[in-house]
Write a protein that binds this DNA or RNA. Structure first.
Lengths: 194, 194
DNA sequence: TTTACTGTACCGACTGGACGGTTTACAAAA
DNA sequence: TTTTGTAAACCGTCCAGTCGGTACAGTAAA
């Protein structure tokens, strides 16, 4: 995908561009209609190509699903890195960035809906689940080594995950005031336990 | 289901008993193979009857799924009531019971696997999702009114939910020592904020 | 500077299987 | 003799994946 700014000197789309188109199309279907509506035919149609065309880029549905997970994981982790850089290298910086990135993403209704579908997909697609489990293990490792008391760091991480979970599924989520209090308190807990 | 202890004076099974058999069969399929393997035919077979027999008790798959949710919700809430009674009526009793019931359930591998399937099912079955959302809203209401500072009570509830979430999906879950510390700390937080 | 060939990207009809739900027939208890 | 419960064949739909083929860009020998 390097220097894709050249804007097609020839008329043809690059494979990377098409794959991106497919990711966005598939994600939109997950947001609008959910996992059960994500069929190969529909994803292809939404991306503006045929099923055969889609299957040229992804050999089967599992490969597509896996790639979608990587795509969104990358987006989240890029944002995480950004926020981490903003926090500097103070103790707890990583955990604060994790909290901010999580809240930021899940506040958006579309993203929440997208993630709800992705988490549901993990039940069906074992490879995607394995990928996510590894992500969380990596994150937990960072949580334990970000300069805080490891036990407290984990507790705070689980609180953030609980907030995420409750916002994602709309399980008795906090209202705006409550959410603000929670975020402030989470940040304070980070400061208190370094 | 009242007084089903009578153990069939006639030979025939009662409808309630058959339904219970179906719930257990369906749950076992969810545990062993997951949501996509829960078909009407398979559930019937596992329960030891035919598809027609199953559809006599549940008019369609949605009705079956809904009933399975009610079945497991009832089990959880009965346990919650039990533990709540044990805690007496001290401030935070309900929240402590919620924490204990949650941990107790999710520690068991089969139950964790079952719930992972049930949560995934919510993405596909809107009525089940609505049911669960209402449950969480009710629980959040109890959390806010169990005698603690409402904000702190919510934070603690979200921590418990985060722990549940991480155990259920095996997302970087705590080890045994860490889990013990977390539970102790959660109980202590309840005591500190009443 | 045509011609022949190769690889990339894409198309769309088709197949085979799974699954939810219907229908019909039948058995036994009340 | 009606109600309750069970069985099993069958139907229609949906969908993942296959496959033969097209369009076109680049390349290189003729």
């Amino acid at each position: 995908m390097q220097e894709s700014t050249r804007e097609n000197i020839g008329q043809r789309r690059t494979a990377a561009e098409t794959r991106d188109l497919i990711f966005q199309a598939a994600s939109q279907i997950l947001i609008d209609e959910g996992l059960s509506s994500l069929t190969l035919a529909k994803a292809a149609e939404q991306a503006g190509l045929s099923k055969g065309g889609l299957l040229y880029h992804f050999p089967n549905k599992v490969a597509l699903i896996d790639a979608i997970f990587e795509y969104h994981n990358d987006i989240f982790e890029r944002r995480l890195d950004e926020l981490c850089a903003e926090e500097g290298h103070a103790p707890g910086a990583w955990l604060k960035a994790y909290a901010r990135a999580s809240v930021e993403q899940i506040i958006d209704e579309d993203t929440a809906s997208l993630y709800a579908s992705l988490f549901a997909a993990e039940e069906k697609y074992a490879s995607a689940h394995a990928k996510m489990r590894q992500k969380y293990i990596d994150w937990q490792d960072k949580v334990e080594n970000c300069g805080l008391d490891p036990n407290w760091a984990m507790l705070i991480r689980l609180t953030v995950d609980g907030l995420w979970f409750s916002e994602m599924h709309q399980y008795g989520p906090p209202n705006t005031q409550q959410r603000d209090w929670l975020i402030t308190q989470i940040m304070e807990l980070v400061d208190q336990h370094q």
